[in-house]
Simulated assay, not measured.
Amino acid sequence: MPRVPIASEDERKFIVDGIQSQCRNDGRDCRSYRPLLLATDVINTANGSCLLKLGGTIVMVGITFEFSRSSQDKPNEGRIEATVDG
């Protein structure tokens, strides 16, 4: 199967030049990282939640559970429901 390049030759040169000059395109040096914030229990109506901020990226996750008894005629069956909002 032929190999498909992920980056163009110009993109590769840009990346290699940045590594060799110890500088990223956003001005940070190679050992600097983006500001990071991680907080838990940020949604008081969820059973678990967290907020992650990494540079300009923000991700929030909330998990809720609902517990109920299974029916007597089907004690080994239950239900799992997942919802994702973006």
Results as ranks from 00 to 15, higher is better:
34 R>A: 13
50 C>H: 08
23 C>F: 04
84 V>R: 06
25 N>D: 04
11 E>L: 14
78 G>T: 04
23 C>L: 15
40 T>I: 13
23 C>E: 10
15 I>N: 02
77 E>A: 04
66 E>S: 10
24 R>Q: 10
77 E>Y: 02
56 G>N: 12
56 G>E: 03
77 E>R: 07
79 R>S: 07
40 T>G: 09
1 M>C: 10
36 L>I: 06
43 I>Q: 12
19 I>Q: 04
11 E>Q: 15
29 D>G: 08
73 D>V: 14
46 A>Y: 11
68 S>A: 13
40 T>W: 12
74 K>T: 02
71 S>P: 02
5 P>M: 05
36 L>S: 01
81 E>L: 11
54 L>G: 00
59 V>N: 07
86 G>Q: 04
64 T>Y: 06
31 R>T: 07
4 V>C: 08
15 I>L: 09
42 V>M: 12
18 G>R: 05
76 N>Y: 05
38 L>W: 09
19 I>N: 01
20 Q>N: 13
10 D>N: 12
16 V>W: 10
77 E>G: 00
10 D>A: 15
4 V>Y: 06
11 E>N: 07
34 R>F: 05
51 L>Q: 11
29 D>I: 10
73 D>S: 15
26 D>N: 15
26 D>A: 10
9 E>S: 13
9 E>D: 12
49 S>D: 05
52 L>W: 00
37 L>N: 07
11 E>F: 08
51 L>H: 11
76 N>H: 08
26 D>C: 07
66 E>R: 15
48 G>T: 07
66 E>M: 10
25 N>F: 14
40 T>E: 14
4 V>G: 03
19 I>K: 05
52 L>F: 02
58 I>C: 14
68 S>T: 14
39 A>T: 12
46 A>D: 12
31 R>W: 01
76 N>S: 07
81 E>S: 15
67 F>W: 09
5 P>L: 06
80 I>D: 02
64 T>H: 07
63 I>T: 12
47 N>F: 06
60 M>K: 14
4 V>D: 00
1 M>R: 12
5 P>E: 09
22 Q>N: 13
3 R>V: 06
82 A>P: 00
51 L>W: 00
30 C>R: 12
23 C>P: 01
7 A>S: 11
81 E>K: 15
58 I>M: 10
74 K>V: 02
79 R>M: 04
27 G>K: 04
27 G>N: 06
34 R>L: 13
3 R>I: 08
1 M>F: 07
57 T>R: 14
55 G>A: 09
31 R>K: 06
22 Q>R: 13
73 D>C: 10
57 T>K: 14
52 L>C: 06
26 D>Q: 05
31 R>G: 08
